[in-house]
Amino acid sequence: MIQFFNVNKIYEAEVRVEALKDVNLQIENGEFIFLVGPSGAGKSTLTKLIIREETASSGQVLSDGKSLARMKQRDIPFYRRRIGFVFQDFRLLMTRTVYENVAFAAEAVEMTTTEVRQRVPLVLDMMGIADKRNAYPHQLSGGQQQRLGIARAMVNNPTMIIADEPTGNLDPETSAEIMRIFQAINRRGTTVLIATHDKDMVNLMRKRVIALKEGRIVRDERNGGYQHEA
């Protein structure tokens, strides 16, 4: 469970940016959540706070009741192993095969060679790209590339998946396919948080929607849609 209590995030650069303002939020285990809002609304900042890439300027972010800000530096990698991250631009290693891309992540969390050999084919099969294991990313379609991105996020068997605009580079049909995969993952009990501004998708899915605008939560609705945005 993730909780935000009065969270503010201010970036002090050349110009002062208030990325999040007084955010209060609770994400239960096993939820499926869309995080919506225009660019610059604070969606990325919110996900960065959850994966402990950033810390709150004020307020508290808790994971299972523990403060992320006070988490020891050396515990952060182990915390992140419980979260899978999916990128808009897939971030695949172009010089490595499908199998190697996933194995790379498995090795990074120090799975044994045996565990890697068991786990990687399993997630590739789950994502429906087992037959492409020796292909290189550029030989895959956009949808397949994102499936590979999801496979990599899943190899660690995380309790939560965070996706930042996962369908941003995909056509509507492929986007629907990717969403079905996220739904399937969620049905297995994994929490799914998707930052997006794909209105159609959000409206279609009827899941919890958290809308951000200028750093504030302007709406948090069960079974919500995108169009009623304040």
Binding site: P77, G84, F85, L93, F104, R152
Partner: peptide, 17 residues
């Protein structure tokens, strides 16, 4: 750098990186 980003996000320890 891409590999490093991925390693960090999947939870590789600093020393592993």
């Amino acid at each position: 750098r891409d590999e490093i980003t991925i390693m960090r996000l999947v939870g590789a320890t600093n020393w592993y990186i």
